[in-house]
């Protein structure tokens, strides 16, 4: 499927990479896609405005029930691409070059994930944290404070996922879906 430039939506005038967007996903305005590898967005996911998805090096896969907030940059680090699990919440101003982000992970405001890093499931990265390249975070880790780590034993995973679903629900009502702009 040849990528076609849609209306006056995205900032880039380059051809869009091949996108397969689930019909239940919500994409807002002003999202920029660049690169040539395919980008997959799972069911029920929400992308806020001004996200940048860069798939020049590899494909990007976003799972279901994800929320990607504004001004984030998702960059595929290498040919294996970037894979986000389900129920992932990426907050504002993040710069993600990780290889894999596990399910139910919260990546808070302003985090930087280095190239090729691998984040486990159910992790929480507090705001402004930095994960170095090729770092591996096991499951249930919390990164907080001055890059300190601890194991999260708070058993709030279920509650969190439900909150995510409610959040997505709410966002769907508030953000107009502009995904048609990006798929021809």
């Amino acid at each position: 499927m040849g990528p076609k430039r849609s209306g006056a939506s995205s900032a880039s005038s380059a051809p869009l990479p091949p996108l397969s967007i689930d019909p239940t996903a919500v994409l807002s305005d002003a999202i920029s896609f660049s690169g040539t590898y395919p980008v997959t967005i799972g069911a029920n996911s929400v992308l806020h405005p001004r996200c940048k998805l860069n798939s020049t090096e590899g494909p990007i896969v976003i799972g279901s029930n994800c929320i990607i907030s504004e001004r984030t940059q998702l960059i595929a680090p290498d040919i294996d691409g970037l894979v986000l699990g389900n129920y992932v919440h990426v907050e504002v101003n993040c710069h993600i070059q990780a290889a894999r982000i596990g399910d139910a992970t919260s990546i808070e405001v302003g985090t930087k994930l280095g190239k090729g890093s691998c984040i486990g499931d159910n992790c929480t990265l507090s705001p402004l944290s930095t994960i170095r390249d090729v770092d591996v975070l096991p499951a249930f880790t919390v990164v907080y404070g001055e890059n300190q780590r601890r194991v999260d034993a708070s058993a709030t995973a279920v509650a969190r996922n439900e909150t995510m679903l409610a959040h997505i629900d709410c966002l769907k009502k508030l953000i107009p879906n502009k995904s048609e702009k990006y798929t021809r």
Binding site: E70, R71, V92, N93, T163, A166, H167, D169, C170
Partner: peptide, 14 residues
């Protein structure tokens, strides 16, 4: 960036 906060209160998320 200014963004209103959100939470679940009494079962309702808003």
């Amino acid at each position: 960036l200014l963004r209103p906060p959100s939470k679940t209160y009494r079962g309702q998320f808003s």
